[in-house]
């Protein structure tokens, strides 16, 4: 049987979340194929080969650099129909989360997203995934599904050591599609930081920061740590920061190694979105704040005073 991996890449460099999937697929001993699209797709396929990708379908085409639900869908549909994989693995990227369920519908198959654990027994996958954004977990499995489509959350699997290996490359050209969806413009975010869902360290702020401009204190701390900046629902609703920064059940579910909550009391829907973080630091004036129940380390104090001092302390050791 074949496991097909969506190998996502930018400028020939494979996304580390895709390398995780290739490493996992290779560890099962099954045939591992991949689809790589966009400029430098061939170079990316060769890199993927060093992690265990055996066969690559390469659409080296600059028109595919920008994700388009219809043109990418056409490439993937063609390969899946031809290859008939039992499993299709993809990352939790925005493009992947958009594309994979549409493919599942086309091939009349099941789909599981945001998996945090994956196991293969025979030809059947079981996956652990958070429900209610982490208030609980469940084990997902497939039944009578021609193909098992999965989007895996990043940073959950080990990337294997690269080895010298040759990947069997098949060059393809993108099927022509009468596009009904036109990408007119891409507006880059103001922030150059990693997306919250992929960040290893997150510095997050809430009402305790008192006003929007005090998020600058978090930005300075994040600069020192190489972190991304998140926020509670209260301050997003107050218009201090955009919704793309919201952590919680109606924002992003995150699981970084270190989450520093500054002036966040810890509403249940916020805790749901971050409580699987490895280490949680809480800084809050109220010693009874629920955030302390989830925290690893707590400081009762004013975030406006503590955060700048913390930034200086980190500078000494980093």
């Amino acid at each position: 049987m074949t496991i097909l991996v969506n190998v996502e890449q930018t400028e020939g460099k494979v996304r580390s979340a895709s390398l995780e999937l290739i490493s996992f697929a290779a560890s099962t001993g099954k045939d591992v194929a991949g689809i790589v699209v966009g400029s430098s797709a061939k170079a990316a396929a060769e890199e993927a080969g060093r992690y265990g990708l055996q066969k690559a379908f390469v659409f080296e085409d600059a028109n595919l650099d920008q994700y388009n639900s219809e043109s990418h869908f056409a490439c993937f549909s063609e390969i899946i129909a031809e290859l008939k994989p039992k499993i299709v693995l993809s990352t939790g990227s925005a493009a992947s989360r958009d594309l994979i369920p549409k493919l599942a519908a086309k091939f009349d198959s099941g789909f599981v997203s945001d998996a945090v654990e994956i196991n293969l027994s025979g030809e059947d996958l079981t996956l652990k995934k958070p429900m209610y954004s982490g208030k609980c977990f469940a084990q997902a499995s497939f039944k009578d599904s021609a193909i098992q489509f999965v989007c895996m959350r990043p940073n959950q699997l080990k990337v294997s050591e690269p080895k010298d290996a040759n990947v069997d490359i098949t060059e393809k050209s993108a099927p022509s599609v009468d596009l009904k969806t036109i990408v007119k413009e891409v507006v880059q975010g103001a922030s150059k930081r990693l997306d919250l869902t992929e960040a290893n360290i997150i510095v997050s702020g809430g009402r305790g920061l008192k006003e929007a401009k005090n998020f600058e204190l978090l930005e300075s701390l994040a600069d020192v740590l190489g972190a991304s900046v998140g926020a509670s629902r209260a301050v997003v609703d107050a218009g201090w920061v955009p919704h793309s920064m919201q952590v919680g059940q109606t924002g992003k579910t995150v699981a970084p190694s270190l989450y520093i909550a500054c002036g966040i009391s810890g509403a249940i829907q916020h805790l749901a979105g971050m409580s699987t973080s490895k280490v949680i630091v809480a800084i809050n004036t109220d010693p009874e704040a629920p955030i302390f129940q989830k925290a690893t380390y707590g400081i009762v104090g004013d975030a406006l005073e503590i955060v700048p001092m913390l930034t200086e302390e980190f500078k000494k050791v980093l």
Binding site: G110, G134, K135, C136, Q139, S141, K143, A295, L310, E313
Partner: peptide, 30 residues
């Protein structure tokens, strides 16, 4: 085609370690 079973709650987190003292000492300890 997809079913969910074996529901579980997230593992309990160990008790929080509160860092006492003055801000300068607290941040250095943290």
């Amino acid at each position: 085609k997809v079913s969910y079973k074996e529901f579980s709650l997230p593992p309990e987190r160990p008790a929080v370690k509160m860092i006492e003292g003055e801000p300068a000492g607290q941040t250095a300890s943290l």
